[in-house]
Structure formats: structure tokens, C-alpha cells
Write a protein that binds this DNA or RNA. Structure first.
Lengths: 344, 344
DNA sequence: TCACGTAATTGAAACGGTTCAAGTTGGATC
DNA sequence: GATCCAACTTGAACCGTTTCAATTACGTGA
């Protein structure tokens, strides 16, 4: 089936392409009667002018950048998007957002879509399954397409804006140890995520500088989706005597922490009296959790702003710029979900 | 400043455009030495091939749809986006999301961007400031660009998927009245929003079928942003004697309800013992609010799926289809933030 | 009826890639 | 050193709009 073009409309109406074009662009040089006739034929043929042809001719004026996030439903990511937007809007850029839903194929498809549509540049929260599967990023590099990663990816040189997960978790665990906690566990996220790996590593590292010793039972795989985390938490405690309960749990992120919190409530375990909970990210709702959550705040807005800044600098530069690598600081926020055990 | 084209690269390298094109498309017909040379020149000139030209030649294969939401940070909207995605992905469409941030100009710009980029169709949560300012929608109609609105807009015939706000609020107020509440107020949202107007109307309507009488002091303008709603709530109660407190508040949406809840906590007013709270939307977090929220659930997922279905049907139809108009049902969800006063 | 000015319309060139049949190169073989 | 073949490269046509100088149509006054 052939696509309808402006030529088809012109032929059918008995006018030239130029006139049809004038109608489409609402020029006032067309005689009303002609105009109406053309509009009617456009409707009849269901003619949809191709933006691509227009953009080619007119030189693609629009300023737009994209973001590929992992999950639109987790406020951590939408806060980053807000940061991007704040910066970009001021520079006259439109921002379009997508989510890869932790699916590598989807990320690939989207990055390709964005570059193919001449979205001027893209910020990507990359899914790093293994070392392989980053050819799509190499392709972007080949065509000098500007992009910024929100996570370090080994094997490729690129602009990166990220946080130091390792250091952040260490700080949290150290806080617990200093507060007199002795049985500390980490509820880890999905194994695909590089965040999970970094956080496990940070957790483990924290013990090397403390009197406590790390053992691998301290790492419990819980996941990050609410329902899954809730179920696994229940299961975890079902298999344990009360005397073996941890005194503190360091969660993978704030959503998981919410699930854990809800599970503990169901099990009638009090927070923080019996178990302290630490989240990760400090999403908007964490301060209003049933027990306001102690958590590690990632500067979501700043991440977005910085990434947008670097991206736009690259977009607007006539020459290829050297890569930038920015690591932002986290902040440990103490609220009511943690208890100090060794109060002097 | 002229844009760099494939021709510039070809000239500089001393080869033809065709060869450069082959390199860009990773064809294996190019001699490695030539390839490397071309790649080097591409880097040197910072050449970014224009997707637009390629798409024009190749006939724009990609399948993609857009969504323009009002606020990416409010989970209600991202849930709709999830629904859209679920349906669209199955049909092979990529989904790209943006937010207009309640800014009419932004919505206009984005709808134009989407059509200009040949995103095949768009779902729009429209900002309806007044009757005017919908020319951008008329323009979309003129070019037969497929779109679906998530809200009825007077003055234009279009595909619509929406909920019956009026009926929903009436149901909630009726529940309160039947539960023996006598002093009921509505904390209204921002006046720009048509949701606000509909909800006010529904609230008022509910009284016409009840022994209570409506008066306009029952409508309090509180807004929908968290900080603003929090501040206004505090203010509202500061100016009132305890005996004048309402027994129940019907909130504009769940985020406002959270702000109200937090404010009441600060004022040491107990929920639901002293005041019942009803939210609106049933966002993901509402069930885990400090007091689990009684609210009106909008079928967010369903809205998204239905909108995507209609949109894709229109995109794929060779002929212009008649508009569809779908109103989805809400569900009143009773949790712990409301109290029945006339327990028999 | 003609000349004239304005309104309306035309049509060929241009945008920047991709395609692919045709042409060129160069190394191996005899 | 002629022949052949595979490897590599070329270049003109094409995609579907917009543009704008040139052309045509039309109404008006002389």
C-alpha cells in the first residue's frame, strides 16, 4: 500500500503541490474556495504530511533532548527528569522522556529512535547487564551523537553523571555500627542492576574498617518491586527465630524499604524499636512513610541538571568535546526509622 | 554557520558520498583503511548524520507514539503511561512520554514537536485554560494527525478517554453523608484545572439529593502541590475554632491529601477520629500513607490501555475513523482515613 | 475592449541522506 | 603481461516536502 503524499492531494484537487503546501501551512494566499476543497480532499484521502520531508527542507530547527530512564513509576527517576527539565527549558529545549523498563532491547530501540528522529541528544540511565551489549552506545559515538550516561559503564568512554553508591552505603553502615548495631543485613536489589552490585560491595567494605566481620548471609536477595520485596521479606522472617532477627536492615532503595516496612508491620515487628530500617535514594514520599524513613539521599535534581548541562554543551559545540565524568555526593538523612542502641 | 553534511566528509576524505554512507551504516563493503580514514574525518568535523534525510529516503519505518502528561512526578500520570506502554509495546510501538507541567505553551510546543517528528500519534492530557487556546488541536486535526485526549475539551471533536469526575465525587460525598458526617468540606485544586471545576461541581451536586445544604464556604481553595497544600491547610485551621472544624474533608487528589494529612498531624488533629479524609485517584502510595487513605480510584492502567488502543487503531487505519468517546468508571475504596459516625 | 494591478497559482530547485547498477582497482593465475 | 574475479568505489536518481520567482487569472476603470 503506497503512502499518500502531497502530490496525491494536489492531483486529486487539480492544483499544484505548492498550493497544497500553502494550505497545510495556513498561509493566507490561498483562495478560500480552493482551500476548502483541498482540506476536504486531505480528509478524504486521510493525508498526513510527513514531518520528515518538511524538516529536511527546512533544516530541522527544533531543540529537543531525550531521557531514557529505567522506570517511570519510581519517583527517583522522575525527579531526575525534573532536574533535566529545569535546566533544559531555560535553554529553550523540549525534553522527552522514556523508560526502558529495565529491558535492554528497549533501551537500544529507544536510543536508536531518538537519534533517528534527530532529537539532539540523550541522557541515558543505562542497563548494564554484562560487559557486552553496549554496541548501541558505540554506534551513538560513531555518529557523534551527544549523550550522557547516568551510570558508569565499563568498556566505553562517555560523559557520565553518577553518584558514589559505594561510599554512600559505607557511610550508612558505619552509622549503624557506630550506633551500636551488631546484626546488620543488606536487602539487595535485582542482580541485573549495577546499583545492586555496587551497593553490596559498599556494604561489605564497611565492615573492613569495623570490629564486626562480614559474612555472606548478611546479603539477602529481596528485589526491588514492591510485591516481590514484600513477599520475600515475609519469607525471610518466617524462617528465623526472633533472637536471630537483624537489628538493622539496609535496603536497596526506598520502594523496597516501603515494602519491607509494610511486611514488618504485618509481622508485628516494630520500627525502629526492634529493627532499624535504612532506605536509599530519598524519594519524595520517604519522609511521609508510616515511619519517616532514614535514607541516603541522592541529589536527584542535581543529577538531572548536571547531565542536562553537559549534554547541551555537547550538542551546541561545533567540535567534539572531551568526555566529562562527574560524581555527585550523597547525603545521609536520619529520620525516625533508625534507632541508636548505645545511647550514653 | 553551515551544517556539516555527508558531502563535506566525502570531499575531505576524497571519496564519494556513497562510501561515507556505507561506513555510517556499518556495511562491510568498505576497505578497512578507507573506513578508518572516513571515521577519523567524521570525528574531526564532528559530523552528525541527519536522521531526517535518512528517514525521508527510507520511508520512516519506526512505530512510535507519544504521551503528553501534565506532571511526571505525580504517580497518577505515570500509571497511565504504564497502561499505554503495556498495550503499545505488544503492538510493536515505542512510547515516549513528556510532561507539559501544566503549561499551555509547553503542551503546544510538544504536540507540534511530536507531529513534526512523525511520532505516529499522541495521547494528550490537555490543559484546558479556557475555551480558547485549542488551535494546536485544530492544527493536528487538519493534518489528520491521530490523537486521543484524556479529558473532554469543549469546542473540539476528538477521541476522548476520561473518567466521570462528577459522579465519582458525588459517590464519595454521599458515603460521608450516609456515614453521619455533617460538616463536610472540599479542598479544591488549582483553578486552571478542569478536574478542579468538575470536582467542585460534583461536590455541590451531592447535596442536592441529601438533607444537608450546600454553601460555598464548603469549598476551600488549597491547591495541589504538596508545600502549597500543606501551608494552606495549616492556615485554614489556624483561623477556626475547634468546634467549627469539619468532620470530613474531600481532597482534590491523593498528593494534596498527603499534605493535608501531614498538616493535621502537625496540628495534632487525629485522622479519622476527629476528621475523616478522602483522597482522589488512588495513587500507588496511598495505601501506605501514615493512615491508609480512603480514596476514589481512577482506573489509571485502564485509561492508558484504552487510549493506546484507540490511538493505534487510528494510526493504522487508512481512512479517517469517527471519534470515540469513552468514560471509565471509578471505584470508591474505603481504607482507614474515614470514620463512620452513626454506627448502629 | 484594453491596460493594469492585485490575487492566486505554478513548478523546478533544494534539503541530505541511501541505494544500487555500473565502473574501477588490484592481486592472483597462467 | 593478459585475463579474470572479487573487492571496492562511484554517482545519479530518489524520498516528500517547502520555497519563491515567474506566471496566470481576474476585476476594475478608462
Amino acid at each position: 500500500m503506497k503512502r499518500i503524499t502531497i502530490e496525491d492531494v494536489a492531483k486529486r484537487t487539480g492544483v499544484s503541490k505548492g498550493t497544497v503546501s500553502a494550505v497545510i501551512n495556513a498561509k493566507d494566499t490561498v483562495k478560500p474556495a480552493t482551500r476548502d476543497h483541498i482540506l476536504a480532499v486531505m480528509k478524504e484521502l486521510n493525508f498526513r504530511p510527513k514531518g520528515v520531508a518538511r524538516n529536511l527542507k527546512n533544516g530541522n530547527q527544533d531543540k529537543s533532548i531525550g531521557i531514557i530512564l529505567k522506570d517511570l513509576n519510581y519517583p527517583f527517576y522522575t525527579s531526575i527528569a525534573s532536574g533535566v527539565k529545569e535546566y533544559a527549558i531555560n535553554r529553550g529545549y523540549s525534553v522527552i522522556v522514556t523508560s526502558s523498563d529495565d529491558d535492554h532491547e528497549c533501551e537500544k530501540k529507544l536510543s536508536h529512535l531518538f537519534s533517528a528522529k534527530d532529537i539532539k541528544g540523550t541522557i541515558i540511565a543505562p542497563i548494564v547487564a554484562g560487559r557486552s551489549e553496549i554496541e548501541h552506545l558505540f554506534r551513538l559515538k560513531m555518529i557523534n551523537y551527544p549523550f550522557v550516561l547516568l551510570e558508569d559503564v565499563s568498556g566505553i568512554q562517555a560523559n557520565v553523571v553518577a553518584i558514589d553508591n559505594l561510599k554512600a552505603i559505607k557511610k550508612a553502615v558505619k552509622y549503624l555500627i557506630d550506633s551500636g548495631h551488631t546484626r546488620i543485613v543488606h536487602f539487595a536489589g535485582p542482580l541485573i542492576s549495577s546499583h545492586t552490585r555496587e551497593r553490596i560491595e559498599g556494604f561489605r567494605d564497611a565492615f573492613s574498617e569495623s570490629p564486626l566481620v562480614f559474612n555472606k548471609d548478611m546479603i539477602v536477595s529481596i528485589g526491588s518491586h514492591y510485591d516481590e520485596s514484600f513477599a520475600r521479606t515475609i519469607e525471610y522472617f518466617k524462617n528465623k527465630g526472633r533472637e536471630d532477627y537483624p537489628t538493622a536492615i539496609v535496603c536497596f532503595n526506598d520502594l523496597q524499604a516501603l515494602a519491607v516496612m509494610t511486611a514488618l508491620k504485618k509481622l508485628c515487628i516494630r520500627i525502629p524499636e526492634e529493627i532499624s530500617i535504612i532506605g536509599n535514594d530519598d524519594i519524595y514520599y520517604a519522609q511521609n512513610y508510616p515511619v519517616p524513613l532514614t535514607t541516603i539521599r541522592a541529589p536527584q535534581h542535581e543529577i538531572g541538571k548536571k547531565a542536562a548541562e553537559i549534554l547541551i554543551r555537547n550538542i551546541e559545540s561545533p567540535t567534539l568535546l572531551p568526555n566529562e565524568h562527574v560524581i555527585l555526593e550523597t547525603e545521609f538523612v536520619v529520620r525516625e526509622s533508625t534507632k541508636v542502641l548505645n545511647n550514653t
